[in-house]
Design a protein around this nucleic acid. Sequence first.
DNA 1: AGGATCACGCACG
DNA 2: AACGTACGTGATCCTC
Length: 591
Amino acid sequence: MTAIAGAAVAGLQIVTVDEVPRHGRIAALVVGLDQRQVWYVPVVHEQEACLQLKDVLNRFKGFFEAARPSKIGFNQKADYLALAAHGIQLQGIDWDLLVAAYLLNSGVRSPSLEALASDVMHRTIEGREALFGTGKTAMTCDQVEIARAAAFFGERMRVTLELQPLLQAQLVRLGNAELFRDLEMPLVPVLAEIEMAGVAVDLPYLQQVSRELYDQLRRLDQEIEDVAHGPINVNSPQQLARFLFEDLNLPGGRKTKSGYSTDATVLEGLREQHPVVGKILEYRQLSKLKGTYVDALPLLVDSRTHRVHTSFNQTVAATGRLSSSDPNLQNIPIRTEVGQKVRRAFIPGRTGDLLLSADYSQIELRVLAHMTDDPVLVDAFARGEDIHARTAAEVFGIPQPEVTANQRRLAKVVNFGLFYGLSDFGLARDTGMSTEEARVFIDAYFRAYSRVREFLEGIKIQAREQGYVETVLHRRRYIQDIRSPNRMLRQAAERIAINMPVQGSAADIMKLAMIRLQRYLQEQHLESRMILTVHDELVFEVPPAERDHLIEVVPDQMATAYPLTVPVQVDLKLGPNWQDMERVRLVAAKA
DNA sequence: AGGATCACGCACG
DNA sequence: AACGTACGTGATCCTC
């Protein structure tokens, strides 16, 4: 114990029985100082005598809660969560191999330690399946012999310790050591805290919505089956295609691998041809919302906290964004009326508290302005203009007051499409203009915004010559197929290359803001909690007494997290749930 | 029979 | 089929 406490760095893993570290069902601790000194401390093994968890945690508490030794691990958010369940705040989370591996190659979705050992050290180690088995017969950690578990986790710890300096050297070589140390690693406990905070949902309300949707769905299903003269599963694209394109003889359009497509755009095109099509579209929409959100969310409410605790994944998205799963709280509906009903279910956990939502306004276009230094784009943001109206004015060569609503709409589609590597074909599909008109429109856009065109061309060249592209903080994404002789593959690679620096830089900025704000809330001993992050939006749960304080600090910290050459603007909304929110304040940080 | 995986469709930024 | 995600359902393949 003395040797451990006195070390500068130590490997650490908290082994849990189940896959939800937040539950804190700790099976064992693994601690390692070097290849020769690795300890496996079992606390829950069914067949054998173990140490008492309480005693073990007490012995190690000082080690956990001290910034030194620095802890090395693999997926340290899980360690933090498992210990937090026992009231221990893990400190010194300095070196997570999972996070490092992600920075080194964000294209590999959540690399395993096995894969790292193989790729970096050319060494084969046992995977979890070898010890626990797979599928229904899989054992949990507590069902395995201590000796076998100790050998398995001990080897992983030795590999972890051996890999760490190798990965560190690679981070330095790539120029990513600072991004790792100052952004991604500090973010680890921030995400864990957000997950632990969770978000409250209004269960009785959701139940009521579920009943309403059930009735509507039954009615629609009946009406559809009346037309079909028999039972049909509207959820089955196969059955639906047979019904529409064989029984009703409607004109089939696009094909999928297994037949005619029945997706929403196809059905929209058939709406006028038969009244049943509208009913199918409505059925689809309601069924999606009911199944994915209204009925699924209540099942994920934690019985102890009465809240939903998502997982924020830091090592999945190739652009540097975070993702959310179990449940995904980053795709809660907002666009349709029924969707908004779902959003109303997200509420503060305590009566009287409020939800505060702060979102970056046009962050990607501002990042684009910053990266390109395009004089027109920079000027528009500097003046605080309506960016889509300005774009329309530039493209059509008319004064801004004369821009029609339709012209603005077209400009908006282009402004969004830019980040996706817009094609004339795509623009035509989204706007209803001809491909030829779309081509002319895009040409006019790039004449007005020549620096944007040069920038996008430059990205493609960089991807081709270096094999990767990067964000403002030098986060990399390697681009496959960028030199492919296959035109389709190559163009797809070019679109990926164009998208990443902008989407990824926006993610960099958001991550910086999250770290600052979490630090601030903690230092000021505020009760307000950061509870969600949705790419360009942060949501907080706020007691009324702290309302004015947060309204001041949140947008300010977000807007100044990473100063751009254009102002960064943050919109602030406040309300009793995630839907019914009112604009409070609009903050723009000076460039 | 039941699990794993693919195909499709679609929710968000 | 313009970038990035997550996930539910049905259909189909695979294993016990």
